[in-house]
């Protein structure tokens, strides 16, 4: 059972991490669009929106890499989950305020007519990825993670002390 879970954990890591890498990678080279996408949510003051617009893609990229490679798996998964919660709150908030925008999840962003019909599916997608992140965080140890090489507990190979060595 645990073995199966560890493989499922690997799958969850790869899917979630892959999504982050794509999302971050597409936005890293498009800072103006990214900042505009954050502004379009009309939640953050302008200067904060600018900082978030620039930092978020970088953070997404690193979380994605960490999850895919499996380094600091648990920490990366917790951060990933927190970000998904933030995105769900963001999308729910524009939905509730009747603002129609492209979520800017994978680049783009800004106003978009008819976006309201996309919100449920975007929230569902983020919720699914949130669950995957929480699962990885709960599991901690998954298959093929660099963590297990880096942080292997070497079972202390105590040197045999020869009988009467003190003599």
């Amino acid at each position: 059972m645990n073995r199966t879970l560890a493989w499922v954990g690997l799958l969850a890591r790869l899917v979630t991490g892959g999504v982050w890498i794509v999302a971050g990678g597409l936005k890293v080279t498009e800072p103006d669009a990214s900042i505009a996408a954050v502004r379009a949510y009309q939640l953050l003051p302008s200067s904060v929106a600018e900082a978030v617009g620039i930092a978020l893609p970088a953070v997404e990229l690193v979380i994605g890499l960490a999850l895919v490679i499996g380094v600091f798996t648990r920490g990366a998964a917790v951060l990933s989950a927190l970000l998904f919660v933030a995105f769900i709150v963001g999308i729910a908030s524009v939905w509730a305020r009747g603002i129609e925008i492209d979520c800017g999840c994978f680049g783009g962003g800004g106003s978009k007519a008819g976006a309201t019909s996309d919100y449920p599916w975007e929230i569902a997608r983020d919720a699914a990825l949130l669950v995957a992140s929480l699962f990885v965080a709960w599991l901690g140890h998954t298959r093929l993670a660099l963590d297990s090489v880096l942080f292997k507990r070497r079972s202390a190979p105590l040197a045999e002390i020869p009988e009467g060595a003190e003599n």
């Binding site: 080279t29 103006d32 620039i54 893609p57 970088a58 953070v59 990229l61 690193v62 380094v71």
Partner: peptide, 22 residues
């Protein structure tokens, strides 16, 4: 070491963003 690599990547990605900013 891992943290240093991560910080480097974040820093590099932010630098790329800032350089691309119009």
């Amino acid at each position: 070491a891992v943290l240093a690599v991560m910080v480097t990547i974040v820093g590099g990605a932010i630098a790329i963003s800032v350089l691309n900013k119009d």
